[in-house]
């Protein structure tokens, strides 16, 4: 870990300005990912702006009948909120499928969106990695890639976005609210929040330098059966090989987003029209253009099977 300076933010806009003013500065909230990466010098911020003191830890109703989740709401609190459990069950289920109780107590809503990939080559600083060191190459391509991406990847990077919460937020059509260093605010639809790697896999999201997440808003509840099915080798405390977040209505229509396969929660709205016809009809459209590796080609049938399991479960629940 490299030495760094530290300050506590006084307001969201001041925090954004403070990070924008110092190249190499970063925000810190729960620190559950950043500190690990700093110990390995995969992240080496010169300055940390601690946003924990900002009052961004409320869950409030919005005028349009949805919820505004403060950026600092801890995962545990978000998952346990009675409104979330009642109206956005897929979100609660996704959150509790991730990490451990201790980590969820610390991890924040905004920080979870910014969780970096878990590609093992990203973590090993002896290995080339375009995400860690732009231009150095990608050791994962041609290497051990069982856990890695099958779609939306590039010749520069085949890593995945590893989280669960964002997959549920994607199926819920959440919006990320931010404040910029200028003090201006903006609303980023979750679909535009994470980027595909392309030639710049070191940039995970479309946030501008210094731009601070202040909240995530959820639209008015849409009802339906909410399911999050996370597939992994062990029963807990593992990243998804494939996960499916789904909201399925009684008539079989619905929305699905897939985790564990791409640089972002993967959703193809056009494919959802086929949901009433079942997983076999949806999956080819959902995964059109997939480029799996030898190690992870099983994820293609696994997406279809997991989706089929979810649709069967929804049918039983309806």
């Amino acid at each position: 870990m490299k030495a760094f300076t530290y300050e506590r933010a006084t307001s969201p806009a001041a925090a954004a300005a403070a990070v924008a003013a110092r190249p190499g500065a970063k925000f810190i909230a729960g620190g559950t990912n950043l500190l690990d990466l700093m110990k390995l010098e995969i992240e080496a911020p010169v300055h940390l702006v601690d946003v924990n003191t900002l009052s961004l830890d409320k869950i409030e109703p919005t005028d349009s009948g949805g919820l505004r989740i403060g950026a600092l709401v801890r995962n545990t609190d978000l998952a346990a909120d009675p409104r979330v459990r009642r109206d956005y069950g897929v979100l609660t289920r996704a959150i509790v499928a991730g990490a451990s109780g201790q980590l969820r107590n610390k991890a924040t809503t905004a920080g979870n969106l910014l969780q970096r990939t878990r590609c093992p080559y990203f973590y090993d600083t002896n290995q080339p990695c375009n995400k860690r060191k732009p231009g150095s190459g990608c050791a994962a391509i041609g290497g051990y890639s069982r856990q890695l991406g099958i779609i939306g990847t590039s010749d520069a990077c085949i890593a995945t976005y590893p989280g669960d919460m964002a997959v549920a937020m994607r199926v819920l059509d959440a919006t990320v609210e931010t404040v910029q260093p200028s003090g201006a605010t903006r609303r980023i639809p979750i679909t535009d929040f994470h980027r595909l790697w392309g030639d710049t896999p070191h940039i995970d999201t479309n946030l501008q330098p210094g731009e601070l997440i202040t909240a995530v808003t959820l639209p008015k509840p849409v009802g339906g059966t909410h399911i999050y099915h996370k597939v992994r080798d062990r029963a807990s405390y593992a990243y998804a090989l494939v996960s499916v977040a789904a909201i399925v209505q009684r008539d079989g229509s619905g929305h699905v987003a897939i985790g564990g396969i791409a640089p972002k929660p993967w959703r193809v709205e056009a494919a959802e029209a086929a949901l009433p016809q079942g997983a076999k009809a949806v999956t080819p459209r959902l995964l059109a253009g997939a480029r799996p590796t030898k190690d992870n080609s099983f994820k293609v049938p696994l997406v279809e099977r997991t989706l089929a399991a979810v649709l069967a479960q929804a049918k039983d629940a309806a």
Binding site: R118, P120, Y121, Y123, D124, Q127, A139, G143, Y144, Q147, D233, R234, A235, S236, Y237, A238, Y239
Partner: peptide, 18 residues
Amino acid sequence: FGFFVNHDLASYEVPVHA
């Protein structure tokens, strides 16, 4: 490159209570 890639407890999985 001749090494064990999953060299931490996040990637070398052992059973958990569940």
